[in-house]
Write a protein that binds this DNA or RNA. Structure first.
Lengths: 377, 377
DNA sequence: TTGTAAGCGTTATCAG
DNA sequence: CTGATAACGCTTACAA
């Protein structure tokens, strides 16, 4: 492949001149400029980015270290990161699935010299030590985990507040007992959501009951298993708060098989508002998390950090989550009654179009939980 | 940050020795080894990867250029890529959303010197010219698009064959008319699936009817709109094949609102088998695509290509897709009859656990369409 | 076994 | 405005 030297020779100038021209330096003659451009085009010259990185010690690349996520949340976070990075003229070097502190460190090492900073999502508390070592070498922004490492900037989700809002809603509309299906132990999101659940109960004057806290791990199948567990020891709770939508999905599936109706027999709410939640039967009440925004914020924070060269004080942004009320949590007051779904007559009523996502308000730092009542999609 | 020179000074050896030791060269004295290790640890030395890339002209990094995908398919492809790359000791540099040929080229340029090869997914046919330029500089593997660029290795999905199998199934179980909701025009997957649909009709002795081909664009809302369109001009077709699951989802949602039942009033099938398809009411018949595998294959192909230094002939792998039959496409022979779902008695039957994914058979190159009949999840 | 020194492809600092 | 030339941090002959 052609190097800057080839271009210089072809254009009959020095490599310094080529470099200047190709980087848009102002003090160059029009004549040299056109000769160099022609030569570069003729040779189809692409600069070697690694070499450029080395001399400038700027890479215009952001490292992204994620746990082994999957599904929509994962994809939206990445999209948010990449879109924003692209707008800021940066690329992203991704690595997923750092199982443990060791691989986390290894991956971070592989970023040395190739990234200007790191976006790091490590929901396990045990990674704190590794993070401490990493942050001495890179500007970093922590994604999501709110167990504060005060020295690092972070952007996280108002898990506790939103979970509180969800459960509070269930209680307010009259559900007598509210159970929960938790996320994996040691996971910060899971713990914060559980805390929100408990706080809501307490505020309503009820004591959290361990028998109502079913262990899950954020997978559908764990929601499915939790349902089986509940069915084994009746009576069913009036309502269930699953710590994420996937578990709610598994829960619904199990109940469907057992012939139990939602919300008539059990009300249900989830967390995350994954795309399909609104399409379920019934549509799922949940807390909407703007994953795209989460990634976007992290990038902006990180980029501003790399610009101010470490002098800046760490910022902690908390993204609010929106309570989205759909029919899965209704209190029909009609437990074990007749069919909820009405029989349709022979005519074919035209449905209304699906609702759009909530407008993305830019009210960044608040932790207030906006509520939205959604009609049937 | 400490460089190799600092370590050398600290250990009292030359930088060459440090390099040798840190890269596990055999011919070094035990004494030097321990001194260097100690120095490296003390200084917390992390080698600069960009510099290493420059000297060795190997990066152990794979570039991944994707269109603006989202959702599970996207996330699974990336996971498949990253997992496999990690196992092969490589990292991935991702860039998504190359809207057009221009940005595609720009992004590829940013990879120069930083990646050993490129995995490229560009479902729009118009990118062919750009691909042609890129492949002169990098070993590349094309993901998915089967409009053959013979010179490039590729791994793609048996879109046509699987779509054929789906529609063929609908016809075989007795659905008189089968409509389709298509993907966006110009998209290779969409076109191949449409072709499979038409071929199945033809094989059954029917002429494809443009009035039964509804235009969609792979989004839920386009499925929703297609449903409205169908409702506007009765009668409904006996069955509908949506070119992906998201559109099937939107379709179901619209029909649910209109009080039309699936499969009693209209049978439905999708494509992709996204995670939630099995949890829908009713569970969705679809073609299972192993997105993770797709990514994994691409990585293996690319890595073997980088090793054999361009001498190898291009390989074209086609990943089969599995027809997954669930209840959304049943022929109840009971159109507009009574409720399909049986009323449940007072007892609570325990559901069976959710079905697992099909076992990932390693029967790579075939295009045969394995079929799987799935009981209710 | 170890050290010296020549690159790798750029940018950036000087003189001119 | 332009050209030498010294970095950048590392690997790797080639000598010793």
């Amino acid at each position: 492949m052609a190097t800057i030297r080839d271009v210089a020779r072809e254009a009959g100038v020095s490599i310094a001149t080529v470099s200047r021209i190709l980087n848009g330096s102002p003090r160059v003659s029009e004549e040299a400029r056109s000769r160099v451009q022609a030569a570069a085009d003729a040779l189809d010259y692409w600069p070697n980015v690694a070499a450029k990185n080395l001399t400038t010690s700027r890479t215009h690349t952001l490292g992204v270290l994620l746990p082994d996520l999957y599904g929509e949340f994962f994809s939206e976070v990445i999209r948010g990161i990449d879109h924003t990075a692209q707008r800021e003229g940066s690329q992203i070097l991704i690595s997923i699935s750092h199982a443990n502190t060791d691989t986390l460190l290894t991956t971070a090492r592989a970023m040395q010299g190739r990234t200007d900073g790191l976006i790091l999502m490590a929901p396990e508390k045990s990674s704190a030590a590794a993070i401490e070592r990493i942050r001495r070498r890179f500007p970093i922004v922590l994604l999501n985990p709110r167990y504060h490492i005060e020295e690092c900037s972070s952007v996280s989700i108002a898990n506790r507040e939103a979970a509180f809002a969800v459960v509070d809603h269930l209680l307010r509309i009259g559900h007598a007992t509210v159970a929960t299906i938790t996320g994996p132990p040691g996971n910060v999101d899971a713990e914060e959501r559980l805390q929100g659940y408990r706080d809501a109960l307490k505020q309503a004057g009820r004591k959290p009951d361990p028998a109502l806290e079913f262990a899950g791990d954020f997978t559908e199948s764990s929601g499915f298993r939790a349902a089986i567990e509940m069915l084994r020891y009746p009576p069913l709770p009036a309502a269930v708060f699953a710590a994420n939508d996937y578990m709610a999905l598994g829960f619904m599936s199990a109940l469907g098989q057992a012939g139990i109706r939602i919300p008539e027999d059990v009300a249900l709410a989830g967390f995350d508002d994954i795309e399909i939640s609104r399409y379920l039967t019934p549509p799922l009440t949940t807390a909407h998390v703007d994953a795209h925004q989460l990634g976007a914020r992290a990038v902006r924070l990180l980029i501003s950090k790399t610009r101010s060269a470490g002098s800046a004080v760490p910022t902690h942004e908390v993204l609010p989550a929106t309570l989205v009320v759909r029919s899965s949590c209704e209190n029909t007051g009609n437990r074990r009654g007749r069919h909820g779904r009405k029989e349709t007559a022979g005519t074919l009523p035209l449905p209304s179009p699906p609702p759009r996502k909530p407008s993305k308000k830019k009210n960044g730092k608040g932790t207030g939980i906006p509520t939205r009542k959604e009609t049937q999609p």
